[in-house]
Simulated assay, not measured.
Amino acid sequence: MAKRVFFSFHYQDVIDFRVNVVRNHNLTKDDNAGYFDASIWEDAKKESDLALKRLINKELKNTSVTCVLIGSHTFERRWVDYEIMKSVERGNKLIGIHINNIRGKDGKTKTKGNNPFYYLGYSYDSTGKKLFLHNFIEGKWVKYSDLDGWNVKEVEDSRRNKIYRLSTSCSVYDWIDDDGYNNFSNWVK
């Protein structure tokens, strides 16, 4: 059965056309590449923070995979962080795809951007019954401010009071080097 995939990205990568290559690659395939596109376009200038959160939450509903399209500055985008953290809360599978090897509308490629999963983390409190979210900013972990933690099934003592980077558990691919055109449907399984 096809997965509903939410795409998270920095809007500049839409302008450069790299996001479009990934999001629309299924249009040239007979099998729909194994997913349905459930993403939204970021338009922060027209929406309040609360309205944007509601819009993101609505678009994430009924998705099972969140695919972060990683460009040069994706790791610095507040709303990409929110989409990732909300996906963690929902239990979505998270994957990242580097898109800077895709030629932009100018015909050029760029060097890989930083992995946004490296800058996001989670921890369990001392009781092991609550999960908290964190950002890695200027070399230190700080509490993630756009989403509260939540109660979880109690975790073992050895997992408490430690911060775990999302990069240790999220697969990241390169659209060109890893042949995303032919492998995307396997990545989102």
Rank of each mutant, 00 (worst) to 15 (best):
K3G: 01
R4G: 00
F7H: 08
S8N: 01
H10D: 15
Y11V: 13
D13W: 06
D16A: 14
F17I: 12
V19C: 10
V21M: 14
V21E: 15
V21Q: 02
V22D: 09
N24I: 09
H25V: 04
N26C: 08
N26T: 08
L27F: 14
K29F: 03
K29R: 15
D30V: 10
D31L: 03
D31C: 04
D31E: 03
G34S: 05
F36A: 06
D37L: 07
D37Y: 05
I40E: 09
I40R: 08
W41V: 10
D43L: 11
D43M: 11
A44N: 14
K46C: 04
K46F: 13
S48A: 05
A51P: 00
L52Y: 06
L52Q: 11
K53A: 01
R54I: 07
L55A: 06
L55C: 02
I56A: 10
I56V: 12
N57Y: 12
K58W: 04
E59P: 00
T63W: 00
T63Q: 07
T66S: 03
C67T: 10
I70P: 11
G71V: 09
F75H: 15
R77V: 02
W79T: 04
Y82L: 03
S87P: 00
E89C: 05
R90C: 06
L94W: 00
I95F: 01
I95C: 01
G96V: 06
G96F: 02
N100E: 15
N100W: 12
N101L: 12
N101F: 10
I102D: 10
G104H: 12
G104Q: 09
K105M: 13
G107R: 08
G107L: 05
T109A: 11
P116C: 12
P116N: 09
Y119I: 09
L120C: 08
G121K: 13
Y124K: 10
Y124S: 07
T127L: 06
T127M: 07
G128V: 11
K129E: 15
L131G: 01
H134D: 04
H134I: 05
F136S: 07
I137H: 02
E138R: 15
E138C: 09
K140G: 06
K140Q: 13
V142K: 13
V142F: 11
K143T: 08
S145R: 12
D146Y: 15
D146A: 13
D148V: 03
D148Y: 02
D148K: 07
W150C: 09
W150K: 11
N151M: 12
V152Q: 02
V152K: 03
K153R: 06
E154G: 05
D157E: 11
D157K: 13
S167H: 03
T168D: 15
S169R: 14
S171G: 01
V172K: 07
Y173F: 15
D174M: 03
D174A: 00
D174I: 07
W175F: 15
D177G: 02
D178F: 09
D179P: 01
D179T: 03
N183W: 06
F184R: 05
V188H: 00
